[in-house]
Structure formats: structure tokens, C-alpha cells
Computed example of a mutant assay.
Amino acid sequence: MRFTNSYIKSRAPQEATNFLKRDNKLAALLPAVERMASLQQDCAATLPAMFSQCDVLAFEQGVLLLSAPNTALAAKLKQQVPKLQDALLKRGWQINNVRLRVQMMKAVEIKPETRPLSLSTAAVDAFDSLSQTLEQSKQNAPLIAALQRMVQKRRERPDY
């Protein structure tokens, strides 16, 4: 579970805490959630480059359990443990030991932002010229037809 500063436009951030406060059983979890979120933020502030991929899994009896998505990052993080412990101690966290767990995170599907391809009028004219100058043969017929369709669409709708 990631405790980052994510913001959903349709909901205010306090709606989740209000939901937790309504139920007695869930309200008991609220201090623990806030504590873990605060610890996650303090770790991220100390090691921002590394902690973008890591998570705080648990913090019990002075033992901090962190997850890393791969062994390479876990090795780098292990080298930074003394720095992390010192920084967290200065922020008031009593951490005696830091353990690391390599744990593959669920892959988040990233949808690339697609934008329409825009062509200048000179480019559209060049494709039109190419479709007219290509040799009329059986192999070139599909290419010529595709070029002519593209030129027609671009001239009808320049924003297409």
C-alpha cells in the first residue's frame, strides 16, 4: 500500500478519513494509517530518489520493514540505511533496525498520452504528389489508395 500525496480530483482528501471515522472498527485503524503515512513521507523526504519505488511495510518495536521492487534497489537502499536511521531519529522515530524485503509491486498499467498527429499543408501536398507520381502497378495500388485516403481526410479535417 502506498502512502503518497495522491489527489483524486473528484474527491477531497478528507473524505477517506471521514469514512474511517464513521465506523468504530475502522476508526481504530486511523492512527496507525496516519503514523505509517507520516513515516513513509519522512523516509521519502530523506531519500527521495530511492523512495519513489519503495514502501514502508511495517514499523513495530523499533524495527522498520521496507519493501523494494528489485534486488538492485534493495542493495542501494541497504547502503543508505545509516543515513536513513539518523534522519528518522532526528525526526523523532525510534528505529533500532531496518529490514529490507524485495517484493515485486503490482505493475501499474501506464497508458501513454496519445495526441493526434498533425501534418502541415506542405506535408499533405507532398503525400498527394507522391500518390500521383508512384508507378501504377499491382504492388503500389494499396499504397496509392492509402495515401489518397489520408490526403482526403487531412484536407477535409486539418485537425485529424
Rank of each mutant, 00 (worst) to 15 (best):
I8E: 11
A12Y: 15
P13F: 01
P13R: 00
Q14S: 14
E15C: 10
A16F: 15
T17F: 15
T17W: 15
K21T: 11
R22C: 14
D23G: 08
D23T: 12
K25M: 09
L26H: 06
A28I: 11
L30F: 03
R35F: 04
R35N: 04
M36P: 06
M36K: 12
S38V: 06
S38E: 14
L39S: 04
Q41K: 10
D42I: 00
A44S: 08
A44P: 13
T46H: 07
L47Y: 02
L47R: 00
L47E: 01
L47V: 00
L47S: 02
A49V: 05
M50K: 07
M50Q: 15
M50C: 12
M50N: 13
S52D: 13
S52H: 13
Q53V: 11
C54E: 00
C54W: 09
D55C: 10
D55V: 07
D55M: 07
F59L: 09
E60T: 10
V63D: 09
L64N: 01
S67G: 07
S67P: 07
P69F: 00
T71R: 12
A72V: 11
A72G: 12
L73E: 01
A75C: 04
L77D: 00
Q79M: 14
V81G: 03
A87R: 04
L88F: 10
R91H: 06
Q94T: 07
Q94C: 06
I95E: 03
L100Y: 01
R101H: 09
V102S: 05
M105E: 15
